[in-house]
Design a protein around this nucleic acid. Structure first.
Lengths: 185, 185
DNA sequence: AGCGTTTGAGACATTAGTGTCGCAAACGAG
DNA sequence: CTCGTTTGCGACACTAATGTCTCAAACGCT
């Protein structure tokens, strides 16, 4: 196989990030395969979108796993919790394009299975935020779901910064961590 | 006229916020007019989208004007600058749906005129951020364009919080201001 | 009530995208 | 080199949405 399904999915995600209305023909082209071959891999457009969402969630989950989010959520040491949050932000920046698809694309919100998985991943983060609040790493006065949405928003902003070229990729993690913990003031 | 263009635009924006792929027939229905009448007001779908984008920008601009953004950008008093930033965030929450359309919809990025106007409004905010940095209200170490994107991201998160019902509308401005200036830590 | 305007309903042609198929060419393992 | 598989290409039917048009009904104003 000259072009694998993985490659098709990757190309499609990246293309859709800037052209959310791209057609199957467009996506076939950017993947370097014919329209027929694309349909051989993904029988329908919906199939493809689900695969993209699934990949996005897999990247997200892997970022969470790579920092040991579950163990960290049971942690009470402030420094460790702070470190885990920082590491997670950094890991998410690395997969900004893929994870960003999960954040912003409409495909996620119409497929019950993807939605459920996304909720699960979000719940894991919320558990981490709650642990961080108990340890005094995050302010206890903020609703934990607001922290989650603000976190999500900052990541959207980070992706946008990278896309526009406003911030160098190597500077992004530090800025993001700094802004999340201490704000802009 | 039973239904004005304003009402059509409002209904369309709100509907598109949750159903970004709605058809003209859908939008006619939520506006309470027939498809033919919708086409009498907006000759093409593109026409309508441009009108929506224009409305979104108008709301955004009005929010900026209501806090006197231009005068504030020439200001050097920290308290005043901080107040202006807070007021602007609050004003933007009030038009979260309309302004949010400008933030997230693809229509903005394909129309040169809308894009130009959006850039202009963004530049006005950036001038305000820069003034705030000079006055020590915002950290000078952060790239001003990153501040702008983080600000934008937090607003996206705020809109999402409201849409989901995670945060009460009356609590939103305070949370947003608090998080923007001091972060979650 | 009468008149000019606006609206809704439906029919229509057109377009763009989707999904399927068959066939010939390219490819790769043996 | 040869055979089985995979690919690209083009054709095709089908669908959904768009934009146009006509006509009769509803409406508002005087």
């Amino acid at each position: 196989m000259a072009v694998t399904e993985e490659q098709i999915v990757t190309a499609a995600i990246h293309h859709l990030n800037t052209r959310p209305t791209a057609s199957m023909a467009d996506l076939a082209e950017v993947a370097g395969v014919s329209r027929a071959t694309l349909h051989r891999h993904f029988s329908s457009r919906d199939d493809l979108l689900v695969a993209l969402g699934s990949r996005a969630l897999a990247c997200w989950e892997e970022a969470q796993d790579s920092v040991g989010i579950t163990a960290a959520a049971a942690e009470s040491d402030p420094d460790r919790l702070r470190g885990t949050l920082s590491d997670l932000l950094t890991a998410l920046v690395d997969v900004a394009d893929e994870h960003g698809f999960a954040l912003t694309d409409h495909a996620m919100s119409v497929n019950p299975d993807l939605l459920r998985r996304a909720d699960e991943l979000e719940d894991r983060e919320i558990a981490l935020f709650a642990a961080a609040q108990r340890a005094g790493v995050l302010r206890a006065g903020l609703p934990v779901r607001w922290i989650s949405n603000a976190w999500y928003g900052l990541l959207v902003g980070a992706r946008e910064s990278l896309r526009r070229g406003d911030v160098a990729r190597r500077d992004m993690p530090a800025l993001l961590v700094e802004t999340f913990f201490r704000g802009a003031g």
